[in-house]
Amino acid sequence: MAKTTINTALLYSALDAARQQRQLSWRALAGEIGVSPSLLSRLGNGLKPDTDGFATIVGWLRMPAEQFFERDGMDSVDDQTREPDLMAQLAPLLRARKDLSETDVRYLQQIIGATVERARAQG
């Protein structure tokens, strides 16, 4: 059976991208997310977050938790080569934009989502 763990490097990288986009310190980012600065420091050192901390972070990033999972002993090649969901990757980038309102972000997500679905249907 495959073991699933949290890819702390990927999670930390997503947080760092959001931090840089917002021009925040790590301490300020922790305050915005609602976690302790030490949790972010532990992530930076490759340590796993506690369950509540992980849930809070992925909720704040508005990304599915599964995007940060690593699986040992995957059963199929498809699971290993599957691309991450485009909308899951774009959502935090759109949300980080200071010039976009929540309404703007939702609208762009709908447009991009419809475009992706159309491309899949044609491809």
Rank of each mutant, 00 (worst) to 15 (best):
A114I: 03
M63A: 09
T115H: 15
A114T: 10
Q80E: 10
L94F: 05
R106W: 08
E117C: 12
L94A: 04
L86S: 11
R71L: 06
I111N: 06
V116L: 14
A96F: 02
L93D: 04
F69R: 14
M63F: 00
Q110C: 13
E83R: 14
S76N: 06
F68W: 05
D85E: 08
R95L: 07
Y107M: 11
R106V: 10
Q80G: 01
D75V: 15
S101D: 12
A88G: 15
T103Y: 08
I111A: 12
D99M: 00
E102T: 06
T115L: 15
V105W: 04
D79M: 01
I111S: 07
V116F: 09
K98D: 03
D85R: 04
L86R: 03
V116D: 13
R97V: 01
A91C: 07
Q80V: 03
I112E: 08
L94T: 02
M87S: 11
L108C: 07
D79Q: 07
P84V: 04
R62A: 08
A88P: 04
R118I: 02
R82A: 12
A91G: 01
Q80P: 00
I111H: 05
D75G: 15
Q67W: 03
D79H: 01
P84D: 11
L108R: 04
P64Q: 13
Q109F: 09
L108I: 13
D104Y: 13
Q89I: 12
E66F: 05
P92K: 00
R118M: 10
A65T: 07
D75R: 15
E66Y: 04
F69E: 09
Q89H: 01
L86H: 10
L90W: 06
T81K: 12
D75T: 15
R82S: 08
Q109M: 15
V77D: 11
E117F: 14
R62G: 05
R118T: 06
D104Q: 13
P92I: 00
E83F: 12
R71M: 11
M63I: 13
V105F: 05
A65Y: 07
Q110D: 15
R97H: 01
L93V: 09
A119N: 10
M87Y: 02
A88E: 10
E66D: 14
I111C: 10
S101G: 05
G73A: 12
L86D: 13
F68V: 01
D78E: 11
E66P: 08
T81P: 04
A91D: 09
Q89D: 03
G113F: 02
A88W: 06
E66C: 12
A119S: 13
A114E: 12
